[in-house]
Amino acid sequence: MIDLAARYALDSGYHVVLEGGLYEPHYGEMLRRLVADHVGVTGVYYFQIPFDETARRHLTKPLAAEVTVEQMREWYQPDDFLGVPDEKTIGSSSSLDDTVNRIITDLAWYTGGKVERPI
């Protein structure tokens, strides 16, 4: 379903961001095919964040009322890289603004500077 929805949106001219617990042994093959098949700009970023920091950030979100830290501990997979060329790592010291600026800068480089910062 993720693959189908992403391909439909890309084919319709939309930008697509896939994020979340996309465990490589389960989603990796599909994601690598999606990256390989996409003719436009593709950025792959791995957020390398220790579990304690992941849990701390989770507790600041509304989803924390539905998903416990204990459940997250069962799902957490450290160093779960996709393993594609140019995959970039973002560490826990990167602020939200730093992370957004880095991705926009990377995309601007790939597109010759034609990327605008989202609102």
Rank of each mutant, 00 (worst) to 15 (best):
A36W: 01
V39R: 13
G40D: 10
G40Q: 08
G40T: 09
G40V: 09
V41D: 11
V41S: 09
T42P: 07
G43F: 06
G43A: 11
G43W: 00
G43I: 07
V44K: 05
Y45W: 13
Y45H: 07
Y45T: 03
Y45L: 11
F47Q: 04
Q48E: 15
P50N: 10
F51W: 06
F51C: 01
F51A: 04
D52E: 15
D52K: 09
E53G: 00
E53V: 14
T54A: 10
T54V: 15
T54M: 08
A55E: 05
A55G: 01
R57P: 09
L59C: 05
T60E: 14
K61Q: 11
L63C: 11
L63N: 02
L63S: 12
A64Q: 02
A64L: 01
A65K: 14
E66I: 00
E66G: 11
E66S: 09
E66F: 06
E66A: 08
V67Y: 01
V69C: 02
V69N: 06
E70T: 13
Q71C: 03
Q71M: 15
M72C: 07
M72W: 05
M72L: 15
R73L: 05
W75R: 05
W75F: 09
W75T: 06
Y76F: 15
Y76S: 02
Q77D: 03
Q77I: 03
Q77N: 02
P78W: 04
D79F: 02
D79W: 09
D80I: 05
D80S: 09
L82Y: 04
L82D: 04
L82A: 01
G83S: 03
P85L: 02
P85C: 12
D86L: 00
D86W: 03
K88Q: 13
T89R: 14
T89N: 04
T89I: 15
T89H: 08
I90E: 07
I90V: 15
S92D: 07
S92T: 04
S95M: 07
S95F: 14
D97M: 08
D97V: 08
D98S: 05
T99M: 01
T99K: 03
T99S: 14
T99E: 01
T99Y: 03
V100H: 05
V100S: 11
N101W: 11
R102S: 14
I103E: 00
I103R: 01
I103M: 15
I104E: 04
I104F: 14
I104A: 10
I104N: 07
T105R: 13
T105N: 12
D106N: 10
D106L: 06
A108E: 12
A108V: 09
Y110S: 10
Y110R: 15
Y110M: 12
T111A: 06
G112L: 11
G112W: 04
G112P: 12
G113R: 11
